[in-house]
Simulated scan of single mutants.
Amino acid sequence: MIDLTGKSVIITGAASGIGRATAILAASLGANLTLGDRTEEAGASVVDEIEAAGGTAQFVRCDVAQEDDVEALVCRCGVPVRTAGRRAQQRRPPQCRQRSP
């Protein structure tokens, strides 16, 4: 089995379906999760479930179609992300500001 202990993982669409299942699996493998979804109540419920099982997770409301939401999600994770591709080269990197949880 994969060991994700100490790894930071971002999962979008984490409030239901495959995203939720992936979050629960990643948490069981030791990952520190930052979960994103448009549905706050369901996302918070997944965090509660993960924490009740001894995992670590935080939720950030995120619509992946909105650039500012995605930047906020990445900044909350605290892990620098490099992306490849033409569009990524034209974009400025996220400017992470201190945000309250």
Score class of each variant (00 low, 15 high):
residue 35 L to R: 05
residue 22 T to G: 11
residue 60 V to Q: 02
residue 22 T to V: 12
residue 41 E to T: 10
residue 30 G to W: 07
residue 24 I to H: 10
residue 36 G to W: 02
residue 45 S to N: 14
residue 86 R to P: 03
residue 47 V to G: 08
residue 23 A to G: 09
residue 90 Q to V: 10
residue 99 R to W: 06
residue 96 C to D: 05
residue 60 V to K: 00
residue 27 A to V: 14
residue 45 S to I: 11
residue 74 V to Y: 14
residue 6 G to A: 04
residue 21 A to W: 03
residue 17 G to S: 02
residue 10 I to F: 01
residue 49 E to S: 11
residue 14 A to G: 01
residue 49 E to C: 09
residue 26 A to S: 11
residue 19 G to V: 01
residue 58 Q to K: 09
residue 30 G to P: 06
residue 36 G to I: 01
residue 45 S to D: 14
residue 84 A to D: 12
residue 71 E to P: 02
residue 28 S to K: 12
residue 94 P to G: 02
residue 59 F to Y: 10
residue 39 T to W: 05
residue 92 R to H: 06
residue 47 V to T: 11
residue 31 A to N: 05
residue 19 G to P: 02
residue 12 T to A: 02
residue 100 S to N: 03
residue 1 M to T: 00
residue 98 Q to K: 11
residue 65 A to S: 15
residue 35 L to I: 07
residue 3 D to K: 01
residue 85 G to W: 11
residue 44 A to W: 04
residue 78 G to F: 11
residue 62 C to W: 09
residue 31 A to M: 07
residue 42 A to C: 13
residue 8 S to R: 05
residue 13 G to H: 02
residue 57 A to N: 05
residue 7 K to Y: 04
residue 52 A to F: 12
residue 65 A to C: 15
residue 32 N to A: 12
residue 55 G to M: 07
residue 11 I to E: 00
residue 7 K to A: 03
residue 61 R to P: 04
residue 78 G to E: 11
residue 54 G to L: 14
residue 91 R to A: 07
residue 72 A to I: 10
residue 45 S to C: 13
residue 37 D to M: 04
residue 1 M to Y: 00
residue 76 R to H: 09
residue 55 G to P: 06
residue 33 L to Q: 03
residue 22 T to E: 12
residue 28 S to N: 13
residue 62 C to H: 08
residue 66 Q to G: 07
residue 91 R to W: 06
residue 27 A to P: 12
residue 11 I to Y: 01
residue 93 P to G: 00
residue 100 S to C: 04
residue 28 S to E: 13
residue 95 Q to T: 05
residue 42 A to H: 13
residue 78 G to M: 12
residue 24 I to N: 09
residue 36 G to K: 00
residue 92 R to N: 05
residue 88 A to R: 03
residue 84 A to G: 13
residue 65 A to H: 15
residue 15 A to V: 01
residue 91 R to E: 07
residue 32 N to R: 13
residue 28 S to Q: 13
residue 45 S to A: 15
residue 19 G to E: 03
residue 67 E to P: 13
residue 21 A to E: 04
residue 75 C to A: 15
residue 52 A to W: 11
residue 48 D to G: 05
residue 79 V to K: 10
residue 92 R to F: 04
residue 75 C to Y: 12
residue 75 C to R: 11
residue 83 T to M: 08
residue 38 R to L: 14
residue 62 C to I: 11
residue 40 E to V: 08
residue 93 P to Y: 00
residue 21 A to M: 02
residue 50 I to W: 05
residue 2 I to P: 04
residue 6 G to K: 06
residue 39 T to R: 06
residue 68 D to L: 15
residue 72 A to T: 09
residue 26 A to D: 08
residue 32 N to E: 13
residue 87 R to W: 03
residue 23 A to E: 05
residue 72 A to D: 08
residue 35 L to W: 06
residue 92 R to S: 06
residue 43 G to Q: 04
residue 33 L to T: 01
